[in-house]
Amino acid sequence: MEARYVPRFEIEDALDPGATLFDGVRATDVDLIGTPVGLQPTAAIRVSWTGREIGATDRVRVAAVHDGQTLAFRLEWLDDSENQALLDTTAFPDAAAILFPSVAGAPSVTMGAPGLAVTAWYWRADEPGRGRHVVAEGLGTSRTLDVELVRGRGVWKEGRWQIVIARALRVATDEPVAQLTAGETTGFGVAVWDGQHGERAGIKAFSGDWRELRLAAAPAVMGR
């Protein structure tokens, strides 16, 4: 799919899921599958999730725009219940994330591998306005680098989540995070956690192998 180039926008405007920013942008339906129970990193999780449905969300509609500085995704999916507050020990939040390879060859299914980092832009319903900027080099290794660079906001209405996740294409850091460039193509993935079904950690719906995202080239600056 393509992240369409749009003239310069403010990240705050992009975070409004109903913003006109995405008007006319072609959205892509991405099929999701549950993560394999055999890939869960501990025996306790494997035993407790064997025979249970993993990945309650089977499809997410994805649209993306960038202005040469910031890349924003809008995700939409069906969810009967809004799970936000963590008031009880049994309550888990709805959440979603976009995944990128930080370096070429990083595997998506295992959340990277040692020396082959992946970067996640993670949003969850109980943390309005912000996102988590995450890197991982294998299952169970994810680290939240900061909660400032990735921004996210979501609205749940009539059985449907509509959220926006955004970050600058390039960020200043020594960490192995994905640095993106307009005009180039990157792999990406999507994951959705349904809190109502106890989904958290590796228990989620995800898009499998990398999908392709073309970042439309910014128009050439006209000569003087």
């Binding site: 501990t42 025996a43 306790a44 035993v47 407790s48 008031l87 009880d88 020990t89 049994t90």
Partner: peptide
């Protein structure tokens, strides 16, 4: 491992 349940608050 034997599956366990989460106690409620």
């Amino acid at each position: 491992p034997r599956p366990g349940k989460l106690p409620r608050r």
